[in-house]
Computed example of a mutant assay.
Amino acid sequence: MTVYGYARVSTDGQTLDTQRAKLTAEGVERIFAEKESGAKTDRKALQAALKALKPGDLLLVTRLDRLARSTLDLLNSLDAISKAGAGFRSLADTWADTTTPHGKLMITILGGLAEFERSLILARTGEGRARAMARGVKFGRKPKLSPFQIEEAKRRREAGESQTNIARSYNVSHQTIGRL
């Protein structure tokens, strides 16, 4: 079992020294550190730490907000750790310890709440779309051709002109003309 650490600060003015000292005192063998905003989900050192994890390893952070800024980001990171067969622990947040049954329970509850919140968002979004459609709002891409151009292109096609020639005159692909 290897114990890895992850340390992060948001700005160049901050220092990683305190986090490094705490992680080292806990027996961390390798620390992945970076100066990146927690709002970024594609942090290089975090990705490297997640890739390094093997079954039985442990990823340690000093505080939960060093790993993630949002519940969704946290759950995605914890899922990646779990899929690697590794554990996770936060020094300041003792409940966030996937190596204990209590910690696993707390993470499961958080996951359930996040899933519930996501379903509420989807329901509200769907209702909003339905109301907008009832008001005549059109969704999706704007048509490449106007109704007049569509009718004209159909007439030209029926007259025997090739799809490619018609498409070139409207600056669209021949598939667009074919779908008409």
Rank of each mutant, 00 (worst) to 15 (best):
T99Y: 03
G126C: 07
I81F: 04
T100K: 10
L120Y: 03
S82A: 13
K104G: 08
S82D: 13
R124F: 06
T98K: 05
N76Y: 08
T108H: 12
G111I: 02
I109V: 14
N76E: 12
G112D: 10
F88D: 07
L105Y: 14
A86F: 07
A86V: 02
L74F: 07
L110K: 02
R135W: 05
G103H: 12
D79V: 03
I109F: 14
G111K: 01
F139P: 15
R124P: 07
R118N: 11
G103Y: 13
T99I: 05
L105K: 13
S77R: 05
T108D: 03
I107Y: 12
F88N: 02
S77W: 03
S77T: 12
S82K: 05
I107W: 11
G112A: 15
G87A: 08
M133T: 12
T98V: 13
S119M: 14
T100N: 09
L74V: 00
F139R: 06
T108P: 01
A96D: 08
M133P: 08
R129V: 15
L110N: 08
L91W: 00
G128K: 04
E117R: 06
N76S: 06
R129W: 06
V137D: 11
E127W: 01
L75I: 14
G111P: 05
T108L: 10
L91F: 01
I109W: 14
S82F: 01
D97L: 04
T94D: 13
T100G: 10
E115M: 04
W95D: 00
G140T: 11
T100D: 04
L91D: 06
A96Q: 10
L113K: 09
K83R: 11
L120G: 04
A123W: 03
G128C: 09
T125Q: 07
A130G: 13
F88I: 00
G112S: 13
K83S: 11
W95C: 02
D73Q: 08
A130T: 11
F88R: 01
I121G: 08
A130L: 07
D93F: 03
G103I: 00
G112M: 10
G87H: 00
G140W: 00
L78P: 05
F139Y: 13
A86D: 00
L113N: 07
F116N: 13
I109M: 12
R124S: 06
A80L: 06
M133Y: 09
K104V: 11
A96P: 02
F88A: 02
E115H: 05
K104M: 15
F116Y: 11
L122A: 12
M133F: 08
L120N: 08
T98I: 09
F139K: 07
T100H: 05
G136R: 15
E127I: 01
E127F: 00
L91Y: 00
K138N: 12
T99D: 08
A84C: 04
G140F: 01
T125I: 07
K138W: 02
G140M: 12
A123G: 10
G136C: 09
A134P: 01
G136D: 07
F88V: 01
G140E: 09
H102G: 15
R131H: 14
G87I: 00
